[in-house]
Design a protein around this nucleic acid. Structure first.
Lengths: 190, 190
DNA sequence: CAACAATACGGAGACTGTCTCCGCTTAGCA
DNA sequence: TGCTAAGCGGAGACAGTCTCCGTATTGTTG
């Protein structure tokens, strides 16, 4: 579900433009936040606005495409953690990284942690990765069995949001590590 | 710091328009979210855009004015909790209410929980109220002494955000009670 | 109560961004 | 080499933000 929703493959020029758009959009969103001008992105990518809007009917769609790629790279980051000796510590670690990644991505991605369906989409990758880590921690008896992955995702995404915003408001803010720590304290078996 | 930053009082017509604008803006923001058209708000309030922009130089300013009133009413809600027999339960209760209020306010207010300065502003009222409840709970030995009010505000605002978003994404979502519960579990003395 | 500042009003319009429509171009196939 | 479906891109309609400035209103002072 990248672009051609099945059917014949994209024409070469179309694919080229598609890739260029996603690349430029990534830059632009990072530089100017999720409100970056779409016409501007089109211009930088060397295509007309019409082309952009054919590939991505609205801002959301483009944002999604950008985030999907991003999510893949983030999820890849988790691979070593899946084999860590202490699964609970690994989960903690992962959640902190997740917050960092999401923050680095300005908040483009914060909404993503929240949905659990959308088969192939961004959220799925992250949710799935998290789930594995959660299961391992539960199996090892490190965290309470009644806590769900979704709940942790909600809390984590909330923390990203909160850290991002209070940081940009210039306020001294507790670190993600600290806040995740508090949550883990509530979730750990005793 | 409502409108006249000291100096002579506002002229009668100016005050009238100011009030009307805040009232209409509240409705509009609730109805259409924080992106409601400002020109439209002006029109509904029966004034020209120029008038709106003189009173509120930008969207943020108007949003602030709306939120200040809202925060006062929310804070008033906490009065009984300040004398509750079990301060820890009272804190829990308050945090849940806070999330509910913020969610009801669409997310207009979620950013507000985060700043701790801004003397008179919205955030202050809420932060201050929370602080009292936190102090009482600490004094009663119900929660850890190392946890700060800011931290709880960050987590709470995060939860509002997360609940608001996953709800509107149509996903089955854990209740605010549950999530606040998890946090309280991490924060309670054992 | 008249007249005059000071204050406030409001709408025209400049500007920016979103998104669509459609005539033209190009890739890919026979 | 030529045809056709797929794709392109820019002109422009529309909506929202915000400013500028001539006009109207308030409240004060003689």
């Amino acid at each position: 579900m990248t672009a051609e929703t099945q059917g014949r493959p994209m024409r070469a020029d179309a694919r080229r433009n598609y890739e260029k758009l996603v690349a430029v959009a990534t830059e632009s969103f990072l530089a100017h936040g999720p409100d970056a001008s779409l016409d501007d992105i089109a211009k930088r990518a060397g295509v007309g606005p019409g082309t952009l809007y054919r590939h991505f009917p609205n801002r959301e769609a483009l944002l999604d495409a950008v985030c999907v790629r991003w999510a893949d790279s983030v999820a890849a980051d988790a691979a070593p953690l899946l084999e860590a000796a202490d699964p609970t510590a690994a989960l903690n670690d992962w959640l902190v990284r997740l917050v960092d990644h999401v923050s680095a991505f300005k908040g483009l991605a914060s909404a993503l942690l929240l949905s659990t369906d959308r088969k192939h989409d961004t959220a799925w990758v992250l949710h799935h990765t998290s789930e594995e880590l959660v299961e391992r921690a539960k199996a090892a008896g490190g965290i309470r069995a009644d806590v769900t992955t979704s709940e942790l995702m909600q809390l984590t995404s909330g923390i990203s949001y909160a850290c991002g915003h209070s940081k940009q408001a210039g306020k001294p803010t507790s670190t993600p590590e600290r806040l995740i720590g508090l949550i883990m304290d509530g979730v750990r078996t005793r």
